[in-house]
């Protein structure tokens, strides 16, 4: 393990911790909306930061570690299924936009697409768990909420990433 490996490991751990805390903070302020699955997605700021600072590998690692930790701490097995299916789809789509970041898509695009596909992933999981397609009727609302929360978290990430880039600089 050389110097860079250790630095990378510590940074991933710090980001995972930040994501777990954001998950906890988000749970303290439930949104008064009667549609399941609408959340601000604050932990997604960390996924975005990990993606834009260190690439998809970091984003997936931090996501999976965060979901495992929050599920063991607060959630449960079914929670884990929903968070993982939403999260993995979301990070996968955000990685695509990260790849095309020079083609005119900013971090906000990645965040918006990530938010929307996070919700789509959760709906797919709900369809499997409940074995019904009625959950599809929530899709329009969840797409709009994904866009709104995506703009919010994407804007925050857009402010955070350049500032962290200086501090977190490692040789990739």
């Amino acid at each position: 393990m050389n110097h860079n490996d250790i630095k990378r490991m510590v940074l991933f751990a710090v980001m995972t911790a930040a994501a777990v805390i954001l998950h906890f903070v988000e749970g303290m302020f439930p949104l008064p909306i009667a549609v399941p699955g609408i959340k601000l997605g604050l932990p997604n700021i960390v996924s975005l930061a990990a993606l834009y600072l260190f690439g998809p590998y970091a984003a997936f690692s931090v996501l999976i570690l965060r979901v495992l930790m929050t599920s063991f701490l607060y959630g449960g097995f079914s929670n884990m299924i929903f968070s993982l299916s939403g999260g993995i789809l979301s990070v996968a789509v955000m990685s695509l936009f990260w790849k095309f970041r020079d083609k005119g898509f900013s971090i906000v695009s990645a965040s918006v697409a990530g938010g929307v596909f996070h919700n789509i992933g959760q709906i797919l999981a709900a369809m499997l768990v409940l074995r019904t397609s009625t959950v599809l009727s929530y899709l329009p609302v969840l797409i709009v909420s994904g866009v709104v929360t995506g703009v919010v978290t994407g804007t925050v990430a857009g402010i955070v990433v350049p500032r962290l880039a200086g501090i977190y600089s490692i040789n990739k």
Binding site: G104, F105, S106, V108, A113, V116, G146, V147, V151
Partner: peptide, 14 residues
């Protein structure tokens, strides 16, 4: 935000 960001948002909303 860039022009393509708004375009993407528009596509999702439609």
């Amino acid at each position: 935000m860039k022009k393509r960001d708004f375009l993407l948002i528009g596509v999702f909303l439609i």
